[in-house]
Simulated scan of single mutants.
Amino acid sequence: MHMFDPDALECLAAIVEEGGFERAAQRLHITQSAVSQRLQALEAQAGTVLLVRRPLKATPAGQLLLKHTRQLRLLRADLDRDMRAFAPQSGGRLREQERVAVAVNADSIATWVLPALQEPVAQGLPLEIIADDQDFTQEWLREGQVLGCVTTLDQALRGCRMVPLGAMRYVAVAAPAFAQQRLGGALTPHNFHQVPFVAFNRKDDMQREFVSSRLGLPRLALNQLFVPSSEGQVRAVLAGWGASVVPELLVRGLLAAGELVDIAPGHAERVALYWHCWNLESEVLDGLSQALTQAARAALD
Rank of each mutant, 00 (worst) to 15 (best):
E22C: 01
F192H: 02
I129A: 05
L225Q: 05
A58Q: 04
L65W: 05
E231C: 03
S108W: 01
V234Y: 05
P176H: 14
A296L: 15
P189E: 12
A101Y: 03
Q97D: 08
V195W: 08
Q89R: 10
V163K: 14
G47T: 08
Q294N: 11
Q155G: 07
D5I: 03
L165M: 15
E281N: 02
D80E: 10
H276W: 02
V171T: 08
A221E: 13
V100P: 14
R84I: 06
L217C: 09
T69Q: 12
N191Q: 06
E43Y: 05
A199D: 11
S289D: 13
L127W: 11
A167T: 15
L157W: 04
N191D: 08
A172T: 13
L249E: 15
M162Y: 00
Q32R: 12
V150T: 08
Q294F: 04
D262Y: 10
E231R: 09
G240M: 00
G216S: 08
D107G: 04
Q194P: 00
Q134S: 12
L260C: 01
L64Y: 02
E119P: 03
A299I: 12
D132M: 09
G92E: 11
L39A: 01
M168C: 14
T111Q: 01
V100H: 08
D80T: 08
A25R: 02
A41I: 00
A272F: 07
A116Q: 07
G124P: 02
L79S: 07
H193Q: 04
D80C: 06
E17R: 02
A122Y: 08
Q63Y: 06
V261P: 10
R252I: 13
E22L: 05
E98Q: 03
L260W: 00
P55F: 02
A87W: 09
R161A: 04
Q224W: 04
P265F: 11
A199M: 07
P88G: 09
V16M: 11
L94C: 11
Q63I: 06
I109W: 14
E209S: 06
A186M: 04
V227P: 05
A110T: 14
E259K: 14
Q180V: 00
V237H: 02
P6F: 00
P228S: 14
A175H: 14
R297P: 01
E10H: 05
K203R: 10
R53N: 05
G240E: 00
G19C: 09
P88R: 06
T152I: 15
A167G: 14
A221K: 14
I109R: 13
E259L: 05
G20T: 10
L39F: 01
P55Y: 01
D154S: 15
A174D: 05
V113A: 15
R208Q: 05
V113W: 11
R76C: 07
V211F: 07
L157G: 03
G62H: 13
G19I: 12
F226D: 00
C149Y: 09
M162A: 01
F178H: 05
F200T: 09
E209Q: 06
E96Q: 09
G266D: 02
L65G: 05
P60I: 06
N279G: 09
L141A: 02
R297V: 12
A116D: 03
V121E: 15
G185K: 12
L39D: 00
V16A: 09
D107V: 01
L147M: 01
L74A: 11
I130G: 09
P196M: 00
P60G: 03
S212N: 12
L117F: 15
T188S: 11
Q71L: 07
L51Y: 02
G62L: 14
Q37Y: 02
P164E: 08
